[in-house]
Design a protein around this nucleic acid. Structure first.
Lengths: 100, 100
DNA sequence: TTGACATATCGATAATTTGCGATATTATAA
DNA sequence: TTATAATATCGCAAATTATCGATATGTCAA
């Protein structure tokens, strides 16, 4: 967990939103056939629609969040699903309380 | 408290360090004649020395941290002292736990 | 008042980030 | 196989950030 990388990832309105939306995905995303969003996550297209930005941008933002350790990914067929990585998020909370 | 502004302020090694040093200033800064660092804070020159960057840069970094609400300032004579703003820091911790 | 510090601000250049369109890659279904 | 859909990556221009030197501003002491 690289604090600077994490804070950079969080320094952007869209990326903050993605992370927030993923906290309660059923509330924010339109369902995906036979996928439990809570367990599996949401795919890039779902995020793209919600963000109202290009697929390219959505994909990159998800990638930035993932490299920072804030979300994790699972490929199922031609879809890539992303969901929150609660462990890392807790770690950052701890870092914030102890080091900052 | 503007989360994006806060995370941007924290997205820099030097600024993170300043904030960390200020947590226990006596441990990290050389004393200033008759000033209780814990109560009053440390001045720009002290931070400049510790940072090993120019006075200009140190002053700007302190200003960025202050605008983000992470530190507060008090001018005494020709010195400007900065210390942590624990209230805001707590607020951000809460934001992090609740919104992110 | 003037000189000497401490700090803030301005203007500049290099580096990084933003967000896009175009294209490459991967996986499925026909 | 091939057409198609989903995703990733590349290369770009615009915007923002990093860091500096130079200079302005504020404050005290002589």
């Amino acid at each position: 967990m690289e604090p600077i990388e994490v804070f950079k990832a969080l320094s952007n309105e869209s990326r903050l939103q993605i992370l927030h939306w993923l906290k309660d995905p059923e509330k924010h995303f339109t369902p995906h056939e036979g996928i439990d969003m809570r367990k599996i996550g949401v795919c890039v297209s779902q995020v793209t629609d919600k963000l109202k930005m290009t697929q390219s941008t959505a994909s990159q933002y998800l990638s930035i969040l993932q490299r920072a350790g804030l979300i994790k990914t699972e490929r199922i067929g031609k879809y890539t699903y992303y969901k929150r990585n609660e462990e890392t998020i807790r770690e950052i909370g701890a870092f914030f309380n102890n080091e900052i």
